[in-house]
Write a protein that binds this DNA or RNA. Structure first.
Length: 301
RNA sequence: GGGGGUAUAAGCUUAAUGGUAAACUGCGGCUCUCCAAAAGCCGACUUCCGGGUUCGAAUCCUGGUACCCCCG
């Protein structure tokens, strides 16, 4: 038996699978509060495009990690991890049940596994310098600095090579990624077939457009975000930005969006598929009732 | 009816001095050490059909088919 006694309920699944609605129902039932695990919902002003819960939808359930950053600034997983851990501990202190809910796997696992990232802030100047070099050159540099990390890193991935060099330069080498889990986690995954998900994504996309998603992007632009920054956010922000710049027409925007969101869902699943701890909602049961039972048992132990 | 052109992956655009059929998109799979809705990797699928020349044909010759253009 592990000594970890703090309990955390994680609700995950691909985009558009219905995590939000389910988690609110469950939180209401179990005296819970919700910590969002979404790499885009952390930004202020990005609401419709990220599918952020509205005040009304929250039904009085407290939500954390929404609107904690300005979209003008770069936010990172390390910042997320710190804030999320704080929030969870705060909820536990109140004797409430923390629900970690979201679809950003990297963010979820940064909390669930509590990876120890090297304590080193990004050095934008150095990154810009290194960006000019080819992947091959970068790999050679890393090899000299830290041959061990060079062995496991992807040779063609400049972004990761640059980060590794950044760390190795200051710390001498890249420390092994340590996992130090501190919560007893119940991982609940919402399962959807590919066809179902496709339809859900389509439906949700049209709904968001009707709700004024394009106007939201226009507004962000007016507030000073560059087109490049908007495109960096991906999905709705990327394709609407392209549309607003006249690079593509409306139909192309929809088509590309649908495709990219489907891709995104697939990519999320490659993380989740590996994790054997996840309990997937069975298609034969009502997800809410099924999850309720599971959580009840989990909290009893 | 006559003359000319085009035909390469699921799609589209496009490569390959007669010498291992390829890129892009899509599709499938994967990686994950501070941009993760990011970034990167791997895979499957092709020469319109038939004959000929050649050691060897997407390529040259020839017949057919489909489409396009011009003349009547």
């Amino acid at each position: 038996m592990s000594r970890i006694t703090k309990k955390l309920i994680v609700i995950l699944g691909p985009t558009a699978s219905g995590k939000t609605a389910l988690s609110i129902k469950l939180a209401k039932n179990f005296n819970g509060e919700i910590v969002s695990a979404d790499s885009r919902q952390v930004y202020k002003g990005m609401n419709i495009g990220t599918g952020k819960v509205t005040k009304k939808e929250m039904q009085g359930i407290k939500h954390y990690l929404l609107d904690v950053a300005s979209p003008k600034r770069r936010f990172s997983v390390a910042q997320y991890q710190r804030l999320a851990l704080e929030a969870i501990n705060k909820i536990l202190k109140k004797n409430k049940v923390p629900f970690l809910v979201g679809g950003s796997p990297f963010y979820i696992y940064s909390v669930v596994e509590k990876w120890i990232f090297p304590k080193l802030k990004p050095d934008q100047k150095l990154r810009k310098e290194l960006e000019k070099k080819s992947a091959k050159e970068l790999f050679q540099i890393l090899k000299k600095l830290d041959s061990k990390r060079a062995k496991t890193i992807e040779k063609e991935n400049k972004r990761r090579l640059i980060r590794a060099i950044e760390i190795a330069k200051k710390l001498g080498r890249v420390p092994l990624l340590k996992k130090t889990p501190q919560f007893n986690c119940l991982l609940i995954g919402i399962k959807k077939s590919k066809e179902e998900l496709k339809k859900l994504i389509e439906k949700r996309l049209l709904k968001r457009l009707k709700k004024g998603m394009i106007e939201e992007v226009r507004k962000l632009r007016r507030e000073g975000l560059s087109w490049q920054r908007l495109e960096e956010f991906g999905l709705e922000y990327r394709w609407i930005a392209k549309y607003l710049q006249g690079k593509i027409d409306y139909e192309e925007m929809i088509k590309n969006l649908q495709k990219d969101i489907e891709h995104f869902a697939k990519h999320q699943m490659t993380w989740f598929k590996k994790d054997k701890r996840i309990k997937w909602t069975p298609s034969t049961h009502h997800p809410y009732r099924w999850a309720k039972k599971l959580i009840k048992e989990f909290l009893k132990k």
